[in-house]
Structure formats: structure tokens, C-alpha cells
Design a protein around this nucleic acid. Structure first.
Length: 736
RNA sequence: AGCGGGGUGGGGUAGCCAGGACAUCCCGUCGGGCUCAUAACCCGGAGACCGGUCGUUCAAAUCGACCCCCCGCUACCA
């Protein structure tokens, strides 16, 4: 028997957890800990809500409530969702507790005393209009090094330079776009550089880590560690535990990772032995596992280990089996079918075991996995219901009906050996996979065993055998009950609820939890009464949302006719133009068209404008929209609305238009193409159909494609007619 | 454009790090079987030159180089 510490990344308390959290960091540790407990190990599994940080205060401002309200609300929602999913933590706490405040303060003071923290005066932006210091991500300006317009308060996104603070050119408050002032402020920095060598040595022998985690960490470390500030000027968070530090709190990333330690301490207090946590953190034989998504790797393989090294005497992570992402791109947006994928609403529709099965079967262990409702439906119905559920049910119901108890086993039959062998083989491969956190592989082995059961059941044909030789039939069924028992135990980390149900059908007094892992191939008592079984899983059906248009993507846009009033050179960029465009109102647009159009050519031109793009600063100048232009290698031409169009007229092709802003990257996912009009249809390199008519004699039109291989596309048009483009462009040319 | 991750029968995947005999499994499809079971289950067939090219090797899906494509992040894409 061993002890294990399982640490799970803390979900951020500003929204409900969704399937991505479950696949990335929540389900794997639960599978692991249930498995280890079954094998008789003692597990301490902890996590909690990450409740501090700017996004929560922003949300609170919007809702006009306190940050605490937001943080507590989502803590409760997520805690419940996690419990309802049957994910069993020793403790799922939160960062806004006295205990956590104390532990973080302790660590802070300890590192300070040891010289791993130092105070440094920096220039920080303060917005007089908003009356507060601005977090770095809420200041934008021009990078002094590379002159990129995409610099944030602490770092330039273009060249990667980090600033001491206050070095930005033309800084702006992102909220109100006014000019913030610089104020001197002192902050504590952690001397990460002091741990570099030690960390490199530590990571070197982590060959058993997932390659992506190990490599990523190694590269990061070899690139060199920079000291990072660990305090901020804001109210929401853990106050810096020193005099004269009003208005300063500990930066959320420093605060959150310490949660692993504070939660362990809190758990120990609650369990009645306040020192119980120590063993888990100091006994070098006790391994610690950290489960998280790949975005979280550096915090757990560099920063947290650095803090632990600074503190001294505490175990560093043994393994960090980070998962990739569960993506949602296969399904057009989230609302398009059935349910959304946040856990509280998912649980209203599906049993936890169903969700657990799907997530485990589609777990992004080695690469991103894609979620789709089709896949969800198929995996549940074909694998869980048809293979495993059906096998359970045919064995249990047939035996119950014909014997009502566990029938007698005749010695030395072939099937006895065959089935026992199959069970043991599966047990071995499941153990091997589980020990190495390969949960998808272990589940596969279990399903293979269920299929073996089905096959064997078919070839034995008990329904025929019972008429000829009741005793031999009973003996065969005995072995199938053994197999059912094995499957129930093996799968219980994945399907805790239904496995216990099977256990009851088998007439067992105890639970699987009590019986333990060895029950996989233990004997079944003859004559043990069976209980009448019911099917464990039923097929699911996911309805299509009929209201959803094929062109939902197009409807996220708001296209308008625009007229270019004035074109000027961008002050800080060679290839960009600054345009004033009339779209019913005057907006400023930055366009990368200088190579293709002269200023004179552009002035007065009618164009099509994406009017609901989220405004951005391009090299320091505000851009409030973009002009649609077709692009084929070295030819770039603006697309033209029909003649006589007036600025501000919608280009909606008869569809709805969105009044919400759209992110540039979401806009980019939409497919717009040039199409050559012919009698046969539209040519975009292949022939497709048009959903709306092209009545006039236009030769080149612009189409919106719902997907890359769609057979039908929507022609961009106003009420006056379709949008056209210069004939030098071939069909299929992209439009952006 | 930069960085990271991928491209394996119609769809989804395993294998790749530690190269070798018919390339795995699920779904779909075609044909058959069975009737205990939730139109389930079981058997068999068709279907992949393992993104492309070149190379290393007796031998490459697996190693190397270059190229193409997809995805994520980042961007003087707007």
C-alpha cells in the first residue's frame, strides 16, 4: 500500500466549467485516484476554485456586484458540477479562505527572508479616468523597441520584449482609451533566475514525462528565466503581508499554485490530524501527480517547482501528465445543436457515467481531440450501450431467468481457462495503462474484453445449450458472470454508478469500493442469489436545431457599403493606409493595401466593409472595420458593391445581420471566395450552386461558403444586386 | 509571416520516441449467421501505395532533409 498526492489544476471562478475542463484536467485525476484507491492506496486529491485575478473583477464590474459575489457564485456552481459528475476530491476548496491567505503569506514571507524576493520600483500606468492602476493587459501602446502597435503594458507581443513598465509609446487605457499617467510603484519580484540550474537538473531525468511536457519545459528553461513580479496594484486578492503595502495584492498566478499546499493543510485540519499533510509533501517516497491542460504547463513545471525549491523541504512534482485540448470546431458554434457543453446543463440531459465514458474515450492525451455531437452520440450508442451495456444485460438477464442464482462451475472446461485468461490479460494491460496515466488506452482494453465476452457468449450459445445440457450451460454462464464481475470492477473508475449497479445484480453484498481491485478475478460463490437486471444504459438521441441556418456563420457578420472619404499614410507603417470611411457614420480603418492602391485611386471608392469587427489598434492607430478585398497571389482587388449603392446600405444577401461585434479570428474562420458566374452555376475552381439568384450580368461575384466542401454557397448582395470584383481574379480566389 | 501540434482505408483513430513478416481498433458500407439481449450481438468481404519528394538502411508509417496541407497561439492579415 502506498500513498499518492494528486493535485488538480484549479478551475477559474468566472464561468461554469465545461467539457474541456473535464477532459483536460478533472476526469483524468479522478480515474487515477479511483484506480489507486481500488488497489488499496491512500490518495489525497485536492483542488479548488481559483478566485482572484483581474477577469473576475472585470466580470463583477459588468454585473455591478462585488468580485467576491462572482467568485463565490462560480465556486458553488463548479463545486456542485464536479460532485454531480462523481469526481471525488478529498477536498475541493477555494483560494478566498483564511487558511489560503495564511499559507500564501507564509510562503511569501519565507521567500522574502531567504532573499528570493526583492522589491523594485517600477513605473506603472494609472488611469485617472478609471481611477486605478491598470493591469498590464489593459494598457496598449507602441513598443519602443520594434514599434509594433501591439504592445501591452508589460510585454510586446511582436518582439517579445518585456518592459520595466512605463516604456510604452502612446499608451492608452483599454477601457476608456484615454491616456493613462505613469506612477511610481514598488513591487516584489521573484528571483526565478536563481533556480534555473536546479530546475534544469531536475527536469533532465524526467524521461517518463509525456514528451510534449518534458520538451516544452526543457526548452523554456534553456531559454533562460526572467524574474517576475508577484504583486499587483489592485484590491481583489491576497494583501501583501507587509506594512506599507496598502492597495497591493499577490499576483494570482503566485497565489493559485500555492493552493495545492494550502488545500492539503486545510484537508489535514478537517480530517482531525493537522499534521497529516506533511507526509504527503515531505516523504520523498510519496509521489505527486499534477493534472492540467497544456496551457498550464509552465506554471507547474517551472514556477511552482521554483517556489517549492525556494521554500525547501517539500516534494517537487513527480509527474505532470498534461492533456491537450478538447476542441469544438467540428460543430458550428456552440448553439447549433442540442445542448451547450457546460457541465451543469450537460448534466441535466445525461447521466454522469455517460459523460464520463465519452470524455474518457475521446480524451486528448496525445493530441487535440475534437468534440462533436455526432461523435458523442455514436460513441455512447455503439460502444457503451451496444457493446458493454448489452453484454452485461444479456448475461445477467439470461442467467437470472433460467437459474436465478450463480450456477455451478464444472471443473476443467475449456471456457473456464479461456475466460480467466482473457480477464487476466486485460487486468494486466489495464494496470499498465493506468499506472502510466494512459486512460484512453485502459478503457480500450476494457471494451475489448466486453467484445470478447460477446463473441464468446455467441459461440457458446447458452440459449441452445440449455436445452441439451443444463449443467454445462450453467457452468458457461458462471464464467460469463465472472467476466461481468471483472468488467464491473475494471470499469468502475470510469463508470462508478453503473458498475455498482452491476455489482448489485450479481447479488454481491459489498460494494466494489469495499471489495477492491482483486475482485476482478476472485471466485464467485455458487448459489449466490442474483437480482433481476435492467439495462444499464439507454441510447441517446441528439436533436438537430432546425432553426439554425446553414449560413449561421455569415449571420455573425454585419457587412455594409462604405465610401472611402480620405486616404492617408499610416504614420508608423510602410505598407498600411489610414482610411476614413463613410458607412452611414464615419469610421477609421487601417488597411494593408498600399502596395495595390494609390491614395488617389481609393478616395471616393465604394467598398464593402465588415462593420462589426472588434476594433483593434494596428501599429498604434485605431481600426474599426475592414474592407473586403479579393486576393490571388499578387493581385489584390477591393470588392465593389452594386452601382448606385449608398454608404451604410446593408450587404446581407437577404439574411439577418449581427449587431454584436465579432472577433477578428472568428471572422477569419469564415470562408469567402470569388466565384465566376456561368450558365452551369458558380465556378470557384469547381462548380457549386448559388443559394440566391445572380440576375444581372455580373461576371465575378463573392460567395460565402458554409464549409470548405459545401455544394451550395451564398452570393453576397445588397438589395440592388450582387457584390462584384475585378475580372482579373480567378474563381476560387480568397476574400478577406 | 513566426512558433507549437498534426496529416494513417468514406469519417474517427492506434502504432511512430527504442525501424522488420498480412498496418490497429471504432463507426459507416456490402454479404452472411444468430435470436439470449436495448433493430442488439457474432462472422466474413470490399476499401489505405501510412500528405508529397528525396535520402539513410538488408528493411521505414516509424529515422533525416526539403516541400504541401490542416489546426492552435502570435502578428505591419483589418
Amino acid at each position: 500500500m502506498a500513498k499518492v498526492l494528486i493535485c488538480v489544476a484549479w478551475p477559474y471562478a468566472n464561468s461554469p466549467i465545461h467539457l474541456g475542463h473535464v477532459a483536460g484536467s478533472l476526469l483524468p485525476p479522478d480515474l487515477f485516484s479511483r484506480y489507486r484507491r481500488l488497489r488499496g492506496d491512500e490518495v489525497l486529491m485536492i483542488s479548488g476554485s481559483d478566485q482572484h485575478g483581474t477577469p473576475i473583477t472585470v466580470r463583477a464590474e459588468i454585473e455591478k456586484v462585488t468580485p467576491l459575489d462572482v467568485a463565490e457564485r462560480y465556486h458553488e456552481i463548479n463545486k456542485k458540477a464536479i460532485e454531480d459528475l462523481n469526481i471525488e476530491f478529498s477536498l475541493f476548496t477555494k483560494t478566498h479562505t483564511d487558511n489560503h491567505f495564511h499559507v500564501v503569506s507564509d510562503v511569501f514571507l519565507d521567500l522574502l527572508e531567504k532573499g528570493f524576493l526583492y522589491e523594485k520600483v517600477t513605473q506603472q500606468y494609472f488611469c485617472p479616468n478609471c481611477a486605478k492602476f491598470l493591469p498590464d493587459r489593459y494598457v496598449e501602446g507602441i513598443c519602443p523597441m520594434c514599434e509594433s502597435g501591439h504592445a501591452r503594458g508589460d510585454q510586446c507581443e511582436q518582439c517579445g520584449k518585456t518592459f520595466e513598465g512605463g516604456e510604452l509609446t502612446d499608451a492608452r487605457c483599454v477601457h476608456c482609451l484615454t491616456i493613462p499617467e505613469l506612477r511610481e510603484t514598488k513591487h516584489h519580484f521573484i528571483r526565478l533566475s536563481a533556480f534555473q540550474e536546479e530546475l534544469i537538473d531536475w527536469v533532465k531525468d524526467k524521461q517518463y514525462w509525456r514528451p510534449s511536457v518534458q520538451l516544452f519545459t526543457q526548452n523554456w528553461l534553456e531559454a533562460g528565466l526572467e524574474d517576475r513580479p508577484i504583486t499587483r496594484d489592485m484590491e481583489w486578492g491576497i494583501p501583501v503581508p507587509l506594512p506599507d503595502q496598502e492597495g497591493k495584492v499577490i499576483y494570482v498566478w503566485f497565489d493559485a499554485v500555492i493552493g495545492y499546499l494550502s488545500a492539503s493543510i486545510e484537508w489535514a485540519k478537517m480530517s482531525g490530524d493537522p499534521d497529516a499533510w506533511k507526509e504527503y509533501w515531505t516523504d520523498p517516497k510519496i509521489r505527486s501527480y499534477y493534472f492540467l491542460g497544456k496551457d498550464n504547463i509552465p506554471f507547474h513545471t517551472i514556477i511552482w517547482p521554483a517556489i517549492l525549491l525556494g521554500r525547501g523541504g517539500l516534494n517537487l512534482p513527480y509527474d505532470v501528465p498534461a492533456n491537450e485540448f478538447l476542441t469544438f470546431r467540428g460543430d458550428k458554434v456552440s448553439k447549433s445543436r442540442g445542448t451547450t457543453i457546460d457541465i451543469p446543463s450537460l448534466l441535466k440531459k445525461f447521466e454522469p457515467d455517460i459523460i464520463r465514458y465519452y470524455v474518457a474515450a475521446n480524451m486528448p492525451e496525445n493530441k487535440d481531440a475534437d468534440f462533436s455531437w455526432d461523435d458523442f452520440e455514436a460513441k455512447i450508442n455503439n460502444e457503451l450501450v451496444a457493446t458493454l451495456g448489452n453484454y452485461y444485460h444479456r448475461v445477467l438477464s439470461f442467467t437470472y431467468k433460467n437459474f436465478g442464482e450463480v450456477p455451478k462451475l464444472i471443473d476443467a472446461t475449456e471456457e473456464k481457462d479461456e475466460i480467466l485468461q482473457a480477464i487476466r490479460k486485460t487486468r494486466k494491460s489495464v494496470e499498465e495503462a493506468m499506472d502510466n496515466c494512459h486512460f484512453k488506452r485502459a478503457l480500450k482494453a476494457i471494451m475489448d474484453l466486453a467484445q470478447f465476452g460477446n463473441r464468446h457468449f455467441d459461440s457458446t450459445a447458452p440459449w441452445a445449450l440449455i436445452k441439451k445440457d443444463r449443467e454445462r450451460c450453467g457452468s458457461a454462464l458462471h464464467m460469463h458472470l465472472m467476466l461481468v464481475k471483472a468488467l464491473a470492477v475494471l470499469s468502475s473508475p470510469y463508470l462508478p454508478t453503473s458498475s455498482e449497479k452491476v455489482w448489485k445484480f450479481l447479488g454481491q453484498d459489498s460494494t466494489i469500493q469495499q471489495s477492491g481491485w482483486s475482485a476482478i478475478d476472485s471466485d464467485l460463490p455458487y448459489h449466490q442469489r442474483l437480482n433481476e437486471s435492467k439495462p444499464l444504459f439507454s441510447k441517446i438521441e441528439i436533436e438537430e436545431d432546425e432553426n439554425d441556418s446553414m449560413y449561421a456563420g455569415f449571420e455573425t457578420l454585419n457587412l455594409k457599403v462604405g465610401r472611402i472619404i480620405e486616404a492617408n499614410d499610416h504614420p508608423n507603417a510602410d505598407s498600411l493606409l489610414l482610411l476614413d470611411v463613410d458607412i452611414g457614420k464615419k469610421i477609421q480603418v487601417v488597411a494593408g493595401l498600399k502596395e495595390y492602391y494609390s491614395k488617389e485611386e481609393m478616395e471616393g471608392l465604394n467598398v464593402v466593409v465588415v462593420s462589426n469587427l472588434k476594433p483593434a489598434r494596428i501599429r498604434g492607430e485605431r481600426s474599426e472595420g475592414m474592407l473586403l478585398a479579393a486576393d490571388a497571389d499578387d493581385i489584390v482587388r477591393l470588392v465593389s458593391p452594386p452601382a448606385d449603392s449608398k454608404p451604410g446600405e446593408p450587404v446581407n444577401s437577404g439574411m439577418n445581420q449581427s449587431d454584436r461585434t465579432v472577433e477578428f479570428k472568428d471572422f477569419q474562420k469564415l470562408i469567402l471566395r470569388v466565384a465566376e458566374v456561368s450558365k452551369e452555376g458558380l465556378d470557384i475552381g469547381r462548380l457549386i450552386k448559388a443559394s440566391n439568384p445572380v440576375e444581372d450580368g455580373s461576371k465575378r461575384v463573392i460567395v460565402y461558403m458554409p464549409s470548405k466542401d459545401a455544394e451550395e454557397a451564398l452570393v453576397l448582395a445588397t438589395e440592388r444586386g450582387p457584390v462584384t470584383v475585378d475580372e482579373s481574379l480567378p474563381g476560387g480566389a480568397t476574400v478577406r
